[in-house]
Each structure stands twice: as C-alpha cells, then as structure tokens.
C-alpha cells in the first residue's frame, strides 16, 4: 500500500517533470537537491530502524551499508549546495515522500523477526528501483548545474548497486 503510494508520488513527479518540460518549467536545482536529500534521509531512517529491530546478520550489514553510503552522499550534497549558494527548496514531492516513509516506518514497527526482515528488504528493493527511475528520467535530465548533475549521476550508480545488493539479500531470505 505505502509502496504503491511512494511509487505514485514519483510517478506524479515524472509526470510533472514531463508536463513542466513542455511548459519550460522543470523542477529547479533547489527542488531537485531537496528531493534527492530527502530520498537519502528516508533510506537512512529506514536502515536505523532495521539495525535496531533485525537479528539477521545480512540484513543488519545491508542496513549499515545504507547508513554509511547515504550519509556520505548527503554530506557531499550539502557541501555542494553550500558551495553553489543554493538553498534546498521543500516541495510537494519531498513532502509526499517524507509522509509515506513515516507511514512505512510505522507499518514496519509492528513487524518482528523474519517478517520484519522480509518487509524491510522488499521495500528497499522497490524503493531503490523507484528512486533510480526518478533520478534517471527526471532529476538528472532536469538538473542544470554540472556539479549537481555529476553528483546525481554518481549517486544513481551507487543506488543501482544498492538495489542489486538488496535483491541478493532478498533472495537469501527466501
């Protein structure tokens, strides 16, 4: 349910991007930075919950990898926007993402053991897939600053790696 809603939020963004593009008003760099940062923050918070709740070694290792990588990239993003003198700008996509992530966390909080592990990892696979699609189809093509575009492009490769990693862990849980 929540997953579907997250996908819907990004789909709306993709659509908005497409429509806006036709009207010459794509998401601006300040909005893109905010969306990318929010997407990273959401994954860190999901991972922190998994580190607390899971007793599965592979799941905990994966979650710690997510905390480490997304923190490193978000730190880099903050340094970049500061250098560029851009203030990340909150927007409907960021708000929808944050709201849905909070709902997902509440849903996962009720699960324990293997049920939690499976729900967390399945969500990680789907979440990275959705974020990667948004990066590839909307955020990267819309970014005008070369530094921001480079960081998003590197981020996409890292998150594609996370998606594969999550798929491997998901397969091991079956």
């Amino acid at each position: 349910m929540t997953l579907v809603k997250i996908a819907a939020a990004f789909a709306a963004l993709l659509l908005a991007g497409g429509v806006a593009q036709a009207q010459g008003a794509k998401p601006n760099d300040a909005q893109i930075a905010h969306i990318a940062y929010t997407a990273g923050k959401i994954d860190i918070e999901a991972a922190q919950q998994a580190v607390q709740k899971s007793k599965n070694k592979d799941v905990v290792e994966f979650a710690n990898d997510m905390i480490r990588d997304h923190t490193a990239i978000n730190d880099k993003a903050l340094a970049l926007v500061k250098k560029l003198n851009v203030t990340p700008q909150d927007n409907d996509t960021s708000k929808a993402l944050a709201k849905q992530a909070a709902e997902k966390r509440a849903e996962l909080a009720k699960l324990n053991g293997p049920a939690f592990d499976k729900a967390y990892i399945d969500n990680e696979v789907a979440y990275h897939k959705t974020v990667n699609n948004a990066l590839q189809n909307t955020l990267i093509p819309s970014a005008t600053n070369p530094g921001l575009r480079d960081l998003l492009t590197t981020g996409l490769k890292i998150f594609q790696g996370h998606q594969q990693h999550a798929e491997h862990v998901a397969a091991s849980l079956r």
Binding site: D65, K157, I158, G161, H162, Q164, H165, H168
Partner: peptide, 8 residues
C-alpha cells in the same frame, strides 16, 4: 566484485 555495490 564490490560487496556494497555488486554492479561493480
């Protein structure tokens, strides 16, 4: 390969 990013 890279354990963290198996696409490497």
């Amino acid at each position: 390969y890279c354990k963290y990013h198996p696409n490497m």
